[in-house]
C-alpha cells in the first residue's frame, strides 16, 4: 500500500484551477520528487494532501487512509521558507513545535539538544530565530521536521539557503532517513538534487500531471535517438548519422530512424577513431523539465 496516494484531485480558488485532476502515489521508503515551475500547483497539492485544504473532487490517502489528528504526529512538514516564530529563542520555538507533535517537554529538550549539536546550532540555541542566518533557519526547520521521528516527511525546497557543506549534510540525512524506511516527498527546483536523491518523481504544470514515474524510466522516455561520443580526433561523417552537434567537448550524433547505436560504434572502430567515451545520449532532468514545461499544449 502506498504511503501517499492522490487520486484525481482537483482544487480551485475562484476561477483559478490550482490542481487539475492530479494523481500520483508515493511508495513507502522512497524519496519522491514533486517538481514543477512556480505557480504550478505543488504547494496546493501538498496542502490538499495534508488535509489543510479540502479538494473540490478526488480522494487522498496518507499513511494508509484519510488524514486523522493522530496521523499528524507521524508526519514531518517543512514549508518552503520561514515556518518558525521569529521573536522567540530558537530552542523555545523548537520545543513548542515538538510538544505539539506529541513529545514530552523532556523528550523534546533532549532530542533538540542532540540535533542542535549535529547541525552546529548549539551555540545559537538562546538567540531569537530572526537573529539567525537564512541557512541556520533552514537547518532549524529541518530539525523541527525530523524531531518527532516521522514516518512521512514532506519538505519544500530543503536545500534553499544552504552552503555546499550543509547541502551535503542534508542529503546524507535524507538518505539516512530513507534507509530507516521513512518516506520522503520532496518539492524542489534543483534538478540535480532530484537526480541525485529521488527514486521517482512527478512533474506538475498548470495544475496537471505532465510527467510521472521512475527517474531512469523518464530519462529513457526522453532520450533522443542519439549517442554521445568523446574523442580527441575529429569525427568523420558516418553512415546512419543524420547530423553531429558539438557540446561541452563531446559530440552528439543524431541517428537516422533505422540506425542502431552499435552500428555507429562499429563504424568508428573500423575507422580507427580513438574513442574516450561512447554512450546513449540521455537528457538531464533540467532538459526534460524545460522540454516538458515549454512545449506547446497538446
Amino acid at each position: 500500500m502506498p504511503t501517499v496516494e492522490l487520486s484525481h484531485i482537483t482544487k480551485s480558488f475562484g476561477p483559478l484551477k490550482a490542481v487539475d485532476d492530479a494523481s500520483f502515489t508515493v511508495e513507502k521508503g522512497e524519496i519522491f520528487g514533486l517538481l514543477g515551475p512556480n505557480g504550478a500547483g505543488k504547494t496546493t497539492a501538498i496542502r490538499v494532501l495534508l488535509d489543510i485544504f479540502k479538494p473540490d473532487s478526488g480522494t487522498t490517502s496518507i499513511l494508509g487512509g484519510p488524514m486523522t489528528e493522530a496521523k499528524k504526529d507521524h508526519i514531518g512538514y517543512m514549508p518552503e521558507e520561514r515556518g518558525l516564530y521569529q521573536d522567540i529563542s530558537l530552542e523555545r520555538c523548537l520545543i513548542y513545535l515538538a510538544t505539539l507533535k506529541g513529545l514530552t517537554p523532556a523528550e523534546a529538550h533532549q532530542r533538540i539538544g542532540a540535533y542542535l549539536e549535529q547541525f552546529d546550532l548549539a551555540e545559537h540555541r538562546n538567540k531569537k530565530v530572526k537573529e539567525l542566518s537564512k541557512g541556520m533557519q533552514q537547518k532549524a526547520q529541518l530539525i523541527n521536521t525530523l524531531i518527532h521521528q516521522p514516518e512521512l516527511i514532506i519538505i519544500d525546497e530543503p536545500f534553499s539557503g544552504l552552503d555546499p557543506v550543509n547541502t551535503q549534510m542534508v542529503k546524507d540525512l535524507l538518505r539516512g532517513q530513507r534507509e530507516k524506511g521513512v518516506t520522503i516527498l520532496m518539492s524542489t527546483h534543483q534538478m540535480h538534487q532530484v537526480e541525485e536523491l529521488c527514486d521517482r518523481l512527478v512533474l506538475i504544470d498548470h495544475g496537471k500531471v505532465v510527467l510521472y514515474g521512475g527517474l531512469d524510466e523518464i530519462r529513457r522516455q526522453f532520450s533522443g535517438h542519439a549517442v554521445t561520443v568523446r574523442s580527441s580526433a575529429a569525427l568523420p561523417s558516418l553512415p546512419g548519422v543524420e547530423r553531429i552537434e558539438q557540446h561541452n567537448g563531446s559530440a552528439r550524433l543524431n541517428l537516422l530512424p533505422d540506425t542502431v547505436p552499435q552500428e555507429v560504434l562499429r563504424a568508428l572502430v573500423e575507422r580507427n577513431i580513438l574513442i574516450e567515451q561512447f554512450e546513449i545520449a540521455s537528457p538531464t532532468l533540467d532538459e526534460i523539465f524545460i522540454n516538458v514545461v515549454t512545449r506547446p499544449e497538446a
Binding site: 512538514y77 517543512m78 514549508p79 518552503e80 515556518g83 513545535l97
Partner: peptide, 13 residues
C-alpha cells in the same frame, strides 16, 4: 505572515 500557521495546522486543528 511567518507561514508558521502552515506548520501549526499540520500539528493542531
Amino acid at each position: 505572515e511567518n507561514r508558521i500557521m502552515e506548520v501549526l495546522l499540520v500539528s493542531v486543528t
